Simulated scan of single mutants.
Amino acid sequence: MGIENQDVSMADKILMRKKTRSDMLKVKMLKGMWLAMIILAASCGKSGSDGSEEPEKPVEETLKTIKAGQTIKVMTYNIHHANPPAQANVIDMAAIAAVINAEKPDFVALQEVDKNTKRSGVSLNQAQDLATRTKMTMFFSRSIDYDGGEYGVAVLSRYEITDKTRYALPLAQGSNGELRSVAMISVATEGGTGKFYFASTHLEVSDNASRLAQVNELLRINSGIQSPFVLAGDFNAVPGSESITTLQQGLTAGCISGCPLTSPAVSPARTIDYIFLNQHASSAFSVQSYRTASEALASDHRAVVAELKFK
């Protein structure tokens, strides 16, 4: 009996030890789980200021539809391939982006845009670079092949682009002028046709016959659009000229009470950059303001900005 009792006692002690170890393990596991939960909860509120992880970034709402009562801001800007006129052989994308970001436009018509040229950088797509810097989407239209890459016009949009179209513009017969093009996009709107068209162009600078041919092609393009259409760009023609008078047979300049001087940027002496509205746009939108941006060093043109309220 004594030996049996001793065996039982020893067995109990062994069982107790195992139970104690088991309990201790359970306690340790519970503590570990609790600690992990505390760490996880704390990490959810981290700002990332210690450099250990990226801070949470706000989700930006994608603008999809221009709604009744909204005011949109449109801009046209000849960017001189991002070369500040006072700085030879310098490409300053940040300076151009700063002009755009200061205005916070919804749509931008860009002219003199390089894509992968030796002049600006074979790996630099200027329209895409500006889209990234301004958090917009873009559409580029090649006008000519240039310096190992392409050169043309582009559009930036803060709204989701539903359609993209490139149009080539003609030259007069026998002209040796530079080929030009149009970059056109459309976005959704409430009511009516449900579309808003926006385009960028840059017309011939020295050959009046070619510029008139291009104006007539723009009027032909407009005649096929049964929706609000805003055409913006560098038209290389002053108010009252044959080119502008002809264009106004189908489109109206937003600057109804006088168009501001746009070129050269430092001391503007001529108006050659405009924002035009077709008949449908004039009916659907009211022009709230029309002016030039004050910045004068990033390019050789002033940017033109208009605010349009959707009725």
Rank of each mutant, 00 (worst) to 15 (best):
Q6V: 07
V8E: 11
S9H: 12
K13G: 13
I14A: 12
I14Q: 04
K19P: 04
V27S: 10
V27R: 06
L30V: 03
L35G: 00
A36G: 02
S43I: 03
C44P: 05
K46R: 15
S47N: 15
S47R: 14
S47H: 12
G48C: 03
G48M: 06
G51V: 09
V59Q: 15
T62D: 10
T65Q: 06
K67V: 03
A68M: 09
G69Q: 15
Q70Y: 12
I72P: 00
K73S: 02
V74A: 11
M75T: 01
N78H: 06
H81M: 07
A82I: 15
A102P: 05
E103W: 03
P105W: 14
D106G: 11
D106K: 15
F107V: 02
V108C: 02
V108H: 06
Q111Y: 11
D114K: 12
T117N: 00
K118Q: 12
R119S: 12
S120Q: 05
G121K: 08
G121C: 08
N125K: 12
A127E: 11
A131G: 02
K135S: 11
M138T: 02
R142K: 14
R142T: 04
I144F: 10
D145P: 03
D147F: 01
D147K: 08
G148M: 07
G149E: 05
L156I: 03
Y159R: 09
R166K: 14
A168C: 08
Q173E: 11
G174S: 11
L179V: 00
R180S: 02
R180T: 09
I185P: 02
S186D: 08
V187W: 06
V187I: 10
T189D: 04
T189R: 04
G192K: 14
G194P: 03
G194I: 11
K195A: 05
F196D: 01
Y197L: 07
F198W: 09
A199M: 07
T201W: 11
V205S: 10
N208M: 12
A209E: 06
R211T: 04
L212A: 08
L212N: 05
Q214Y: 13
L218K: 11
I221D: 07
S227E: 05
V230R: 14
V238P: 09
P239D: 07
G240V: 02
S241K: 01
E242T: 11
S243E: 02
Q248Y: 12
Q248D: 08
L251M: 06
T252R: 07
I256H: 12
I256D: 03
G258Q: 02
P260L: 07
P260E: 09
A265K: 13
T271H: 14
T271Y: 10
N278S: 00
N278K: 03
N278I: 00
Q279M: 14
Q279K: 14
S289W: 10
S289T: 09
Y290K: 10
A298D: 05
S299I: 00
H301M: 00
A303E: 03
A306D: 03
K311G: 13
